[in-house]
Design a protein around this nucleic acid. Structure first.
Lengths: 235, 235
DNA sequence: CGACACCTTGACCAACGTCAAATCCGGTGG
DNA sequence: CCACCGGATTTGACGTTGGTCAAGGTGTCG
């Protein structure tokens, strides 16, 4: 009977089965900075975020880090690797989650097709997000990456709150850099550039106002004039 | 009753339901270069590759391209965007596919939990692949990207054929570049470097021999000293 | 044999990374 | 209330990886 139920996978579970789900579910709380799951650990549990924000990331042996995404209320966490987690998850803020034992949850899927539908839907939309992010990482410039990032957060914020032109960044510049395949310095420089251009306003507490959403949108989509464009040969 | 059945999602369908699935399924064939689905088109069908290879990609307005992946026999294609495709799919070789009407297929999922399990499994493992590729795109050098690419193909080849140290590249250098977030020139230069170091042998028909799998593995994982070359060139 | 698409190679260059230092800011303790 | 500390952020100078541009090579097919 959690408050986030309408946002979570649980919304797909009919009343009759809800008790069974609840019986095996534990409420978990984490402080900022605490690690929820560790890459390559056996995936004994699945989770549903009911409050707060997390980052998930993978590490290379030499310490390079790729942040795969940020999770907020309603996000589901755990599918992917069949037997072991494929990434580390760490709290960006104090976090509250529902924890489901993996085996039990999987068994419940058999008996509750609407739940499996819901989970498949979550997996599909995560896959879409991942594919969109590949475009960002593979083909966009630093400015385009930052603009895409701000736009994405704005859209996700919109789905929860209603304010679309003010967003909150619970993560550090380093997290953003590791998400976008950049360095903190580059992230900082682009933020400064956008600020000086009047496109955003940065507050010290991590709030950001999008003063020029459509301009950011244009940059994000690569519709902005770039110095050199691939146009039909000029000679 | 297709030959690829044991590799495809259909393997999860019990005999009883198989007729219903078959009744709505069409066999599709494409020539090299033909487009199967186009980004943003309504997703009326889902597909299962039964022969050949395809690439899937997204385009930016100015023509920049990100190849999201390559599909081979057994790969499933179509989930993701709920109502429209999220990418274009184009044949790299002559291709054969099973085509399922989306609506019908979705309805069949309700009645056949093992099929839905299978699809969810495919979606999950695609998500894992996508996340792994984010690390490649966001945090690896050109050499590491190429080494990762060769290793991935080697592992996928292993699952189908048995040869792990000889792989085939049905795609062009440009496709590889657009998959790895590089340019054709860089891909070509790294191939040349690996060839000169005796790590690979390139044949004109697209076959590649991995002469030094463990060296490539080390490079792919970023375990290689970031400095200069290694091992004497064997040519 | 020639056209064409693909691939390789070379010279140059710029976007972004690296390294270093200054600044900001929240928290802590006197 | 204020001085101080440490981590986060910003800013600047400079370097490098990989992109750009251009030319030439190679294989295929009609």
């Amino acid at each position: 009977m959690c408050e986030a139920r309408l946002l979570s996978v649980c919304k797909a579970v009919p009343e009759a089965d809800l008790a069974r789900l609840a019986g095996t579910t534990t409420m978990i709380e984490l402080d900022k900075g605490q690690v929820l799951i560790r890459e390559d650990d056996p995936s004994a549990y699945l989770f549903n975020v009911t409050a707060g924000a997390l980052k998930i990331y993978k590490l290379l042996p030499d310490g390079r880090r790729q942040v795969l995404g940020f999770l907020f209320i309603g996000d589901f966490l755990g599918f992917g690797g069949q037997t072991n987690y494929g990434f580390t998850a760490e709290a960006l803020t104090p976090v509250q989650l529902c924890r489901f034992p993996r085996q039990r949850f999987m068994r419940l899927l058999d008996e509750c097709p609407s739940l499996e539908h819901e989970v498949l839907g979550k997996a599909s939309s995560e896959l879409s997000c991942a594919q969109e992010h590949m475009v960002v990482l593979g083909r966009k410039t630093a400015r385009e990456r930052i603009a895409s990032f701000l736009k994405d957060l704005s859209i996700r914020t919109e789905r929860l709150d209603r304010s679309i032109e003010q967003i909150h960044l619970p993560m550090t510049r380093t997290d953003i850099a590791d998400y976008l395949g950049l360095t903190t310095e580059t992230v900082s420089r682009v933020f400064t550039e956008f600020r000086q251009q009047g496109r955003i306003r940065l507050e010290p507490d991590g709030n950001v106002h999008l003063l020029d959403p459509s301009g950011l949108e244009a940059i994000a989509e690569g519709k902005e004039p770039r110095s050199r464009e691939r146009t039909p040969a000029r000679k």
